[in-house]
Structures are given as structure tokens and as C-alpha cells.
């Protein structure tokens, strides 16, 4: 039977708060999956897609002494704005802990929708034009620029690239206009040559 990597990830996030004691918080995974209808995994908040337990890069068994000290500081960040950088969390995971503190985060396990209400509304870590809160609600990755609701991404990118699109449109229209005249020129020249040959 396959294990759900998202549950493993949130278990480890909880373990951060309780000094190594693992607790499962499937509420967040259930909430995001149900709300978005998409498959998500631990890589939404963690360095590794299977969560922090293990010896792969981004997991606890792979940490150096310095990183373990960093992890210790992150584990003690119960209040917001502690400015920690846990080596097993990605930028979004650290953003959650730094914005809310672990105490508030753990309290939200009964109302996972609150995470979207409590996170800073204007933060957009991957600068794709869709806020982290919206990405959390739609089950897309807050750190991958190319991941987002397609229609939202299209609108945002269209507005951002409108200048280039207009220039490209102008270049295409002018190029076609030039080709039109060039090919007509060839046609006329060929016909004139044929007429000359017939009359000559």
C-alpha cells in the first residue's frame, strides 16, 4: 500500500513543533485536495516531496551539524516573525512558520482554511502574479512560476507581456506585408518575362 507523502510531510512539520514527536495532520492535505481537486504532496512546504523523514537531500538524515542547529532554532519558533530558515522546509514552509509561528499554525489543524486567512495576502514568492494564499487554495505550487490555475496565469502573463506581444504582432504583420509585395513582384516579373518570350 502506498503512503500519502503529504500526510508524512505534515507529520514532520508537526514534529518540528513538538521536538521530534510525530503527529499526523491530514486536515491540511484533505482541505487543499478537496478545495482544489488537485493532487498535492509534501513539496508544497518541504524540501523533499516525501517529507522530512529519511536521508535524502532536504531530509533530516541528510543534515549537516550546522543545518541541525538551524533546525533546532526553527523548532523553537513558536511566535511569528522569528526569521528562521528550517533546512527541511522550502521557502513557502518557512514563510508559513515565520508569518504565523508554529503555535498558531498547529492551532489551525482544526480549521485548515484559516491558513489562507492568516497568511500575508500580498505575498507572491514565485512572482507569477498569483498570491501564495491563492496558490494554497487552488492546490498549485507557490514556488513554481509555471504552476498556477491556467486561466489566471494566462491573464497575468498576458498583461505582463502585452508590450512584447504588440511588437511581435507588428513585426508579423509588417513581415507578411513585405512578403506579399515581394511575391507579387516575382509574379509580375515572371509574367512580363513570359509575355516577352511569347511576343519575341
Amino acid at each position: 500500500m502506498r503512503t500519502n507523502p503529504f500526510i508524512t510531510g505534515f507529520t514532520a512539520l508537526a514534529a518540528l513543533a513538538f521536538g521530534g514527536t510525530a503527529h499526523a495532520y491530514p486536515e491540511f492535505q484533505k482541505y487543499v485536495s478537496q478545495k482544489s481537486g488537485r493532487t498535492v504532496n509534501c513539496a508544497m512546504c518541504h524540501m523533499h516531496s516525501d517529507g522530512p523523514e529519511g536521508a535524502a537531500p532536504g531530509q533530516i538524515g541528510h543534515l549537516t551539524m550546522g543545518e541541525q542547529a538551524e533546525l533546532g532554532r526553527a523548532r523553537a519558533a513558536f511566535e511569528p516573525h522569528a526569521n528562521v530558515k528550517s533546512p527541511i522546509l522550502n521557502a513557502f514552509g518557512n514563510h508559513i512558520i515565520n508569518s504565523l509561528g508554529k503555535k498558531q499554525f498547529l492551532e489551525m489543524r482544526v480549521t485548515p482554511s484559516e491558513l489562507a486567512n492568516k497568511l500575508p495576502k500580498d505575498s507572491d514568492l514565485d512572482v507569477d502574479g498569483i498570491t501564495d494564499v491563492d496558490e494554497y487554495l487552488t492546490g498549485t505550487h507557490p514556488l513554481i512560476k509555471s504552476d498556477g490555475r491556467p486561466w489566471l496565469l494566462f491573464k497575468v502573463n498576458l498583461a505582463a507581456n502585452l508590450g512584447q506581444i504588440v511588437l511581435m504582432l507588428a513585426a508579423t504583420v509588417l513581415g507578411l506585408w513585405g512578403l506579399h509585395h515581394l511575391l507579387h513582384g516575382f509574379d509580375v516579373a515572371t509574367r512580363l518575362q513570359d509575355n516577352d518570350e511569347e511576343s519575341g
Binding site: T140, S146, G148, P150, L153, F154, N157
Partner: peptide, 8 residues
């Protein structure tokens, strides 16, 4: 330019 194929 506007719609990453991966977003699908």
C-alpha cells in the same frame, strides 16, 4: 509567453 504548458 502567457500560458505555461505545465500549468495544465
Amino acid at each position: 509567453a502567457c500560458l505555461p504548458f505545465e500549468s495544465l
